[in-house]
Structure formats: C-alpha cells, structure tokens
C-alpha cells in the first residue's frame, strides 16, 4: 500500500516535471520564431529636412528602431488611413524613445515645413518620436525607389507600406498598412527589436 502511494507520488512528480519542461520548450520555440525577422539589406542614405528645420540623415536612424512611410499632406484617401494606423502605433509605443516613426513627404513642392508642422499637430504629435520629413523631389524619388525599392509614380501612386528599419540601419520588413495581420506582425517585430536593443 505504502509502496503504491510512493509510486503514485513519483509518477505525479515525473508528469509535472515533463509538463513544465514541455511548456518551457514550446514557449521558447514560440519566442524564437517571433524573433526571426528577415534582413533585407541596408537602408539608403538620406538628405532630408525635418518639420522643425533640422537636417535628417541616415545617422538619425542609427541606434533607434524606425518605422518609415511615404505620404503627402494633401492626399485624401489612403494617406490619412495609413497615418491613422501609424498614429495608433505612435501612441502604443509612447513609453519608449527608442522607437521613432519617420514619414517622408513625396510632394515637397506643396508640403512646406509649416504645412508638415500643421499636419503633425493634426495627428496629435507633440514630440520627436514621429518625424515628418521633406527634401528635393529627386532625393525623395531616389530614397523611395532605389533605397526602399518601392515603385509607383510620385506623388499620387506612392506605396502605403510601412518599412521597418533596425538600429543598425538595416531594412527588416515591409508591412501593409491596410492589413491588421500585417500591422500586428509589425508590432511584434518592433517589440522583438526593442528587446534585442535592451539586451545588447
């Protein structure tokens, strides 16, 4: 009788230890799989100006996680929707100064610094976690097409993809701003990159 009891206790302990190890392995596998983010090459050099008037180059992206997109202020349909989604993420990551949002105007002829400032205020942006940039149209075109490999006639046919750039300046992914699934993945990837940044 006592032997049987003893045996049952041993079996229970073995089962619990096995289940605990299974949990550790599965959670670890899941975490690793989430941390796998493709490396799509270096992001381009940039020679742009922020709404505040300060120059913005690639060095401003280093050491930070950047979510880049292209837009123009007078665009009616897709841009407000896209930047609305960026605004959601901007608020989500409000506790970290290591995540920045970089919106580049594809219509520099109309989007002056004053207009960009106004546009930022309309989205409730009051700090430098979300930057609004403009530059010469040739430069913007080069960044858009050769740099980030996005096509489309500018300004009207710009892409609505969000581009993730890691602290080393590498492009890590393109995310469809019209697709919840894709945006959820972007949030996961930003979190993973942040974890790496904190760990290193």
């Amino acid at each position: 009788m006592i032997e049987k009891k003893f045996r049952n206790v041993i079996i229970s302990i073995v089962v619990i230890v096995c289940l605990a190890m299974l949990t550790l392995v599965v959670v670890d596998m899941a975490n690793r799989s989430r941390a796998q983010i493709p490396d799509l090459g270096l992001s381009p050099e940039m020679n742009l100006v922020e709404r505040s008037g300060s120059a913005f180059g690639k060095s401003n992206m280093l050491g930070k996680i950047s979510v880049v997109n292209f837009f123009f202020t007078s665009c009616k349909g897709p841009c407000p929707r896209m930047n609305g989604r960026v605004a959601e993420m901007y608020h989500k990551f409000s506790t970290s100064d290591k995540v920045q949002f970089v919106s580049i105007s594809v219509d520099p002829a109309r989007d002056s610094l004053t207009i960009l400032k106004q546009y930022a205020e309309n989205f409730g942006v009051n700090d430098n976690r979300w930057l609004f940039l403009r530059g010469e149209i040739d430069e913007v075109q080069r960044i858009n097409e050769l740099g980030f490999k996005l096509g489309g006639e500018l300004p009207s046919l710009h892409s609505t993809k969000l581009i993730l750039v890691d602290p080393a300046g590498k492009i890590r992914g393109y995310y469809d701003s019209n697709d919840d699934e894709s945006l959820r993945l972007l949030t996961t990837h930003v979190k993973e990159l942040l974890r790496d940044l904190h760990d290193s």
């Binding site: 599965v26 596998m29 899941a30 799989s33 995310y175 469809d176 697709d179 894709s182 959820r184």
Partner: peptide, 13 residues
C-alpha cells in the same frame, strides 16, 4: 489567403 502573419512554429502549435 493573407500570408502576412505566417509563422511556421506558431501555426503548428
């Protein structure tokens, strides 16, 4: 089918 969120490990779990 939207493939954006595909993750082999998570799908199989």
């Amino acid at each position: 089918v939207n493939a954006a969120g595909f993750n082999f490990t998570l799908a199989w779990i």
